[in-house]
Design a protein around this nucleic acid. Structure first.
Length: 368
RNA sequence: GGGCAGGUGGCGGAGUGGUCAAUCGCAGCAGACUGUAAAUCUGCCGGGCCUUGCCCUACGAAGGUUCAAAUCCUUCCCUGCCCA
């Protein structure tokens, strides 16, 4: 259940209660695609303030398979995370693995990126897999079309997504495992206002416990993304959580919250870390850059994270240069702390009614 | 002392008369990354000029052959292995 405690403009602060505990919104959910947030332990995630994680249907059904995980007591028990888990349906893989799949109205035939084996995913199967995993928030299976799709294809993908949503709901509602679980529907429509609005209306009508906006940050411009959020908001159920899938950067999150978004997920903080990029108040930086070779200061002075409390940029640069696993871990900790700290500050600002000021001041120093 | 194999850009290592400032890997420098095929990928990487392009210095050293040499010849220096 979702309850909103404060709002400031379109921004809101709330809580979502699941069978595995609650999380505060606006929330940032790190990606634990294959049953792990890369390089970190659940304990470390909790310390960072993570309240909910993502898992992925496509990846987990391929390996090790949902039946194995179910047999091990479900995803929470298996991976040692007792908090809420949201699972993505595999819809994003329709986009990211577009070279190795075929779509028809019934579902998507993937050719496994691991061994080439055929794997046919349908809305029904995706729901079954997610429930077998014991996911708290189940995402409907959708087709995430690329940002450069033309109107004709965008419409086709949207209509297919709608039809799949209807089937997802039927499957979910007829499953015994769905008790205390939540199904979210996903809006598509690429960058076309008419489609976006039509999709928002259709998904909203289903009266699900949450509504997601998919198909953004997949190649379209930022202006298109922000514009889409603006035209969608009037059509979203106000009392349900609004989830912007796959976003994002600190500035995208701020712009999302301003446009009524309550939930975000993104691989960026963890992937950037492994690639040697970190965030601080001034923006995005490459630890490999020569300027950090002799920097005795941490990534961000005054940062309370474990990494900044204990290590200089010079040492972290060395670790990344040498591909030491510890470097990946320490940068991941810092980036996640940065983003989760941003979320805490956003909630505080919204609760205190000065979100706009907070956003303006943050972006004044945060370049890029 | 003798035999054999070698000496190429920061390192390793291709190239064996012109298309070579020289494949490739590593290192170095910079960039990308948004529901994770990602500890991945891309660009640059002898020096100079304004990019194409041009000029300079370069393949152990010094000479030589040739229109033309990292590539052929001579001498020298050095390294590794084997034999005495």
């Amino acid at each position: 259940m979702f309850t909103i405690s404060h709002s400031d403009g379109n921004a809101r602060v709330g809580k979502f209660q699941t069978a595995h505990g609650e999380f505060n919104t606006p929330a940032f959910m790190p990606c634990g695609t294959k049953g792990a947030v890369k390089t970190l332990t659940p304990d470390e995630l909790k310390t960072l303030g993570v309240e909910i994680l993502l898992g992925n249907t496509y990846h987990l059904t391929l390996r090790p398979g949902e039946e194995l995980i179910k047999g091990q007591g479900g995803l929470h028990t298996w991976m040692g995370w007792d908090g809420p888990i949201l699972t993505d349906s595999g819809g994003f893989q329709v986009f990211s693995l577009s070279k190795m799949r075929k779509i028809n109205d019934n579902g998507v035939e993937f050719r496994s990126h691991i061994d080439g084996e055929k794997k046919f995913l349908t809305p029904e199967k995706s729901i079954d897999i997610q429930l077998a995993l014991d996911s708290d928030i189940v995402m409907a299976f959708d087709e995430c079309a690329t940002g450069d799709s033309d109107h004709s294809y965008a419409k086709e993908a949207m209509e297919r997504t709608h039809s799949w949503l209807t089937r997802s709901i039927e499957q979910f509602n007829s499953s015994e495992n769905a008790k205390n679980r939540f199904l979210f529907g996903i809006i598509q429509g690429v960058i076309f206002d008419d489609l976006r609005v039509e999709s928002a209306k259709f998904v909203s009508q289903q009266d699900l416990p949450g509504i997601a906006i998919g198909g953004l940050s997949v190649g379209e411009s930022k202006d298109h993304m922000y514009h889409s959020l603006e035209i969608l908001l009037p059509h979203l159920p106000n009392k349900k959580p609004h989830y912007l899938m796959g976003v994002g950067t600190p500035e995208d999150i701020l712009n999302g919250v301003e446009r009524g978004i309550d939930m975000f997920d993104c691989v960026l903080p963890t992937r950037l870390a492994r690639h040697g990029t970190f965030w601080n108040k001034t923006g995005r930086h490459h630890i490999k850059n020569e300027e950090y070779k002799v920097q005795r200061a941490p990534l961000e002075s005054g940062c309370a994270c474990y990494t900044c409390s204990n290590f200089s940029a010079s040492y972290l640069r060395h670790l990344i240069m040498e591909s030491e696993i510890l470097g990946h871990r320490l940068l991941t900790i810092h980036n996640l702390h940065f983003l989760l700290d941003l979320m805490r500050n956003i909630r505080k600002a919204v609760a205190e009614g000065h979100f706009t000021k907070f956003k303006r001041e943050f972006l004044a120093t945060f370049q890029k």
